[in-house]
Design a protein around this nucleic acid. Structure first.
Lengths: 224, 224
DNA sequence: TCAAAAGTGTTAGATTTACACCCATGA
DNA sequence: TCATGGGTGTAAATCTAACACTTTTGA
């Protein structure tokens, strides 16, 4: 019980980069800090790791606190451990990114927490090293979306191919050829066309698709 | 100065996955723990993060302690933060991987630290969650070597194309076609042929090559 | 009737893969 | 002289990228 007592202890926090996709734009949730130090600065949402929970659990809990959602797709971005990163005390932070479907997030709850969706390309200066966290999270998330079928986590469970394409365009910051994109999607058996039609996006209506996880697990190949 | 005092503090450690390449095999350094808890178990080399150094600095320092080498290529693998990961106390560990040229490491120093080079495919059960760290480090390192010219950090500054090919074969766990490999290398201007010949690997002798960082920086394109 | 988004194939070019033999040398 | 690793080019197959018009329907 007294193995490491000669060493220093630190506070550990988690910070969340929460990605959403709305109106053709990739966004993250940020808010103005409501506590010292750094009160009033734009900041990621975060929390402290308590003594009886794993760091991953602290991140899940923090995400739940903010969004009321569980089982979000979430990955660790990394540890940020510069001595002076927090102006108050020595705090090492572990950043996580998460993907959510914006429509699953109750807007009242969002306002209560004082956070808002900000275009990923228009992020202001953030508290401490949060801009660095966002940069790294964005890179990792791009990489992930290009190699695993997780983009769906940013969309409703039924989506049109145009929505899916716009999502990938926003994530990669580059336009895609419609025909080539749809050709590639057709080759992926786990993206299933349904009988349903979405009429909100056009007069003609577009077929709705869904991601079938079972089918994907049988042949987990993905390459956008 | 007393912002966070209601929250728990933890010990922070760093653990190092040190990759080397020798006799055609990819290896890492592991040793038997010389302290409690876990004395005698195979383990990565690590250390504690002190109060006045960044986590990255703690990793650099730990690598230096073990190898006597500075400015190694090093990347963070991530934070490992399960509550019970350390059998003694609550310790969260940040893993790092590093690439070294085995011949740069003084073998006496290695023995003094009680660590040895172990084939990456024959790693025994390790202390705590170290196997998981190794798996993740290996994946990240594979990814890195495929997309950035850092494999050279595992080789002497002058190397033959056969050595380079064997290195990539060991890292990817797959054989490569000699002619196709050499064709791709020829397209990379930053891998320069020297006038020097290595006669240790064959009777005929093989040309020695070097990595030219300047040239690479002018056109940083790499794809193995 | 027309504006706006949905949907659909073909072709040229680029990239990737497969493959086998001669060379130089020291033992 | 021969065993060993060094070094080299071509052709088929695959993948990628470019590109334009018809359909449907609500306003």
């Amino acid at each position: 019980m007294t193995y490491y007592h000669e060493h220093a202890k630190v506070w550990l926090s988690v910070d969340c980069i929460i990605f959403g996709f709305d109106k053709g734009k990739l966004k993250i949730l940020i808010g103005k800090r409501q506590m010292d130090p750094g009160r009033g600065e734009w900041s990621l949402y975060g929390g402290f790791v308590s003594g009886d929970e794993s760091v991953d659990d602290a991140a899940s809990r923090t995400l739940y606190e903010l969004t009321g959602l569980r089982n979000l797709f979430m990955r660790q971005v990394g540890a940020f451990g510069n001595v002076d990163r927090d102006p108050g005390e020595r705090v090492v932070s572990i950043a996580y990114y998460a993907l959510i479907n914006v429509k699953d997030y109750d807007d009242e709850l969002r306002q209560e927490h004082g956070v808002e969706w900000m275009d990923i390309n228009e992020i202001p200066q953030l508290y401490s090293d949060h801009n660095e966290m966002v940069r790294k999270a964005r890179k990792m998330m791009q990489q992930k979306l290009a190699n695993e079928p997780v983009g769906f986590r940013l969309l409703p469970s039924l989506f049109t191919l145009t929505q899916l394409q716009k999502l990938y365009e926003a994530v990669n910051g580059a336009e895609l050829d419609k025909r080539n994109f749809r050709k590639r999607i057709k080759d992926m058996d786990f993206i299933e066309k349904t009988e349903l039609i979405d009429k909100t996006g056009s007069k003609r209506g577009a077929s709705l698709y869904r991601f079938n996880k079972r089918v994907y697990n049988e042949d987990p190949t993905f390459k956008l």
